[in-house]
Simulated assay, not measured.
Amino acid sequence: MYLADQTWPDLGDYVASESVAVVPLGSTEQHGPHLPLSTDHVIAESLAREVADRTGFLCTPTVNVGVSPHHRQFHGTMWVDAPQFRDYVESLTRNLTYHGVDRVVYVNAHGGNVQHLREVGRRLRDDREAYCVEWMWDESIPELVEELFETPGPHGGPKETSMLLHLDREHVREDRIEDAATGGCRRFPEDADTIRHGASTFYDAIDNTDNGVLGDQRDASAEKGERLFEAATAQLVQLLEWVDAQPFEDLMPKPHVE
């Protein structure tokens, strides 16, 4: 069920019997010369709306701009600073709790959001307002990613390229995939030369890759993207069913030991 398509009486019926919502979050940032800036939020929204259709759980509108200052040197990248992002997501989630939702899965497709979503989840759990957990699609299916790609890359690589070929092929510049592969950093961090003596000496994506991408995009295909999408969707369905089945008290912080 997609929240924005419903009337308020319809949503009243939902919160009378259900207490779970999914919130998709991504970014609007560079993904190399071949993928649109919408890559992350397209993936997040597609997964969230698919599981909402399959399970009947509530899906909110997507948070399209995330914590992306590390991509700022590339044209068009948008970002919000981390404190404002955390406060916004917390406020949005408290809005859901006001209407009766007390379990939220953040369907996330941008690595820069991860730690901040975890912090928001901790705040709300400590306040006993809600149980909120961050979920990252590729981290739910590591075996399949490893099976499909020799060099998947953490950003703009073949796994994200495959997902976009499956979900939004119209906006993939397929004629630039070769340039993306040859102009980026194929193996990270081995080829980046920015890990020294145990320290990550980089702060921005451009410190590692001239064209903004990591991995070998030539491994991508729409068929692989469909496999990734279906496998990740299955994992998300199982997570939502688990969250829904837990007694609320079991999801709250444990008491101090005596």
Rank of each mutant, 00 (worst) to 15 (best):
R227S: 02
L124P: 02
K159N: 11
L47A: 15
R176K: 05
D179Y: 04
R218P: 04
E178A: 13
C132N: 02
H256T: 15
E18R: 14
L47Q: 15
G111M: 06
R49P: 02
E50Q: 15
G66T: 09
F202K: 10
T77G: 03
L236A: 09
Q235K: 13
M252H: 13
E150M: 06
D10G: 10
D219C: 08
P152E: 06
P158G: 05
E139S: 07
R176F: 04
A44M: 05
Y2I: 10
V67F: 11
H31N: 10
V257N: 15
Q115M: 11
G156H: 04
D250F: 06
S27Y: 07
G157C: 01
Q84T: 15
H70M: 08
L96Y: 00
L92M: 01
D40V: 11
E129N: 06
F229Y: 14
A234F: 04
Q84D: 14
T55E: 05
V107D: 08
R94I: 00
P83S: 08
G12K: 12
A222M: 09
R123N: 07
S140Y: 09
A192F: 03
H71T: 14
A109K: 11
T60Y: 01
E249N: 12
G156M: 02
R54Y: 03
S38V: 14
E143H: 11
N208W: 15
G56T: 14
L240H: 06
T60D: 00
T151I: 14
E241I: 05
E178M: 05
L25V: 12
N211T: 11
Q238L: 06
D191R: 00
H34G: 04
R176A: 02
D127Y: 07
H110W: 08
I141C: 02
F85K: 10
I177H: 00
V105Q: 04
G215T: 09
V133L: 10
G157S: 01
W79Y: 15
D193F: 07
A44R: 08
D193V: 09
D216P: 01
A48N: 13
L47C: 12
V257H: 15
I177F: 03
N113Y: 12
L35P: 04
D250M: 02
V22G: 08
G76Y: 10
N211E: 08
R218L: 03
R103I: 08
L148R: 06
V51E: 05
D87P: 01
I43F: 15
A21S: 03
H31P: 04
A16P: 01
L214W: 15
F248D: 13
I43Q: 13
E129D: 13
H99S: 12
L35N: 06
E190T: 13
G111W: 07
E29F: 13
W8A: 07
T194C: 07
D204H: 13
P9K: 04
A205F: 14
D244Y: 09
E119G: 01
G66V: 11
A82E: 10
H71Y: 14
R86K: 07
D40I: 07
F149W: 03
T97D: 00
Y98E: 12
A220V: 02
R227V: 03
T39W: 12
V23L: 11
A220R: 01
R173M: 01
T60Q: 01
L25G: 02
G184P: 04
D53F: 13
K224A: 03
